[in-house]
């Protein structure tokens, strides 16, 4: 029976369908995360949030929002660079979704277990910024351009601490493959042992990467009207901004869960009977909730404050973290 199952799974077409299914699940996942965010934000403000769409506690609210966006007229201003403008949602979605190629849902449930999975994940997650910058440029709107430039400037701040924090994890695990990194945390996640500082640095940098408060200067509704996406409407807005933002958030949470919380690996040996994907979803969900929680607690920083924070605090700390990690490794292994 088990062998038959393995045979079926080994069938490349079935496997491809399954892997495509994971990517296709991302859109419903954004609806779920969006709904959770609406509810959490509402309750943090003593409100109820959506209560009507779908009859039970407004569960279908984000679905209704999505359908509304699909029905809307797609407006493009006369001066926009139409080709670039239309390409942007693809680029931002692509950058956000490609991370999931290397993220393991279970030991074998990974679309591609690349040897350089971590490197790949960090590389593709930066693609979205190109889309945001292109959106700002193509919109022929000063607010949009400002937003695009802010996104590009922000990249300079968060990318280095993000990579350095991840590098310490790779040193600790001795591998760049995300499956190996998860396996290296069997029963003791890095966040609790060896890399707690790296975990905090990574979370701060990841918040900046996905442009969420307190580092949401590129979209800053109150200042530059959603930044690069001021001129976007209808489906382009829904996909280029909302879906991309939430997929990127899920992706970064999943990456952080894998790097620092052990991903699909159970937290306790006694809990091994709980399947890996469940662990993965619990850990990712916790980090997503943390990001939402942070968003509705802290106010927005300024761009220069982020730069100062990243270059004067995060990067030195992550270098110290790498040094300590290396020293400990040497002390243990030699």
């Amino acid at each position: 029976m088990v062998t038959t199952l393995h045979h079926i799974l080994a069938n490349s077409i079935v496997l491809l369908a399954l892997k495509l299914g994971i990517l296709l699940l991302l859109l419903p996942a954004t609806l779920v995360v969006g709904y959770v965010e609406l509810k959490v934000m509402a309750h943090m403000q003593h409100r109820l949030g959506p209560m009507y769409a779908g009859a039970y506690h407004g569960w279908a609210q984000t679905l209704a929002d999505g359908l509304k966006f699909i029905q809307k007229e797609d407006i493009m201003a006369a001066a926009t660079d139409r080709t670039v403008f239309s390409m942007v949602p693809y680029i931002t979605m692509l950058g956000a979704a490609l991370t999931f190629v290397v993220i393991p849902f279970s030991r074998h449930g990974v679309i591609a277990n690349l040897d350089i999975g971590l490197f790949y994940a960090l590389a593709v997650s930066s693609i979205s910024v190109i889309g945001v910058l292109a959106a700002g440029w193509a919109s022929a709107n000063k607010y949009s351009l400002m937003g695009g430039l802010r996104a590009a400037a922000q990249l300079i701040a968060y990318e280095l601490p993000l990579v350095l924090a991840a590098a310490a994890v790779a040193m600790q695990a001795g591998s760049l493959s995300l499956v190996s990194i998860a396996e290296a945390q069997r029963y003791v996640p890095f966040a609790l042992w060896a890399q707690p500082l790296g975990f905090l640095i990574f979370l701060a940098a990841a918040t900046a990467e996905v442009s969420r408060t307190p580092f949401d200067m590129p979209v800053a509704e109150a200042e530059i009207i959603t930044g690069a996406f001021t001129e976007y409407s209808a489906m382009k807005f829904a996909f280029g901004l909302f879906a991309a933002e939430y997929i990127a958030m899920i992706g970064m949470s999943a990456l952080a869960a894998t790097l620092f919380l052990g991903g699909y690996v159970p937290l306790l040996p006694q809990l091994r009977f709980v399947p890996g994907p469940v662990w993965f979803l619990i850990k990712t969900g916790l980090l997503i909730f943390l990001l939402i929680w942070i968003r509705w607690t802290f106010p927005r920083l300024r761009e220069d404050q982020l730069q100062k924070f990243a270059w004067k605090v995060l990067i030195p700390l992550s270098l110290v973290n790498i040094f300590v990690t290396g020293a400990l490794k040497l002390a243990h292994w030699t």
């Binding site: 959490v40 309750h43 701060a204 918040t207 942070i294 509705w296 605090v313 700390l317």
Partner: peptide, 28 residues
């Protein structure tokens, strides 16, 4: 996560955690 920003403060201020506590209390 933003606990790093506390490092800037000489006092290791608990402001960020306090803020998180407030929003959590309101949420429940």
């Amino acid at each position: 996560m933003n606990d790093e920003s506390k490092l800037k403060k000489a006092t290791f201020g608990t402001g960020l955690l306090k803020g998180l506590g407030i929003t959590m209390r309101h949420m429940v």
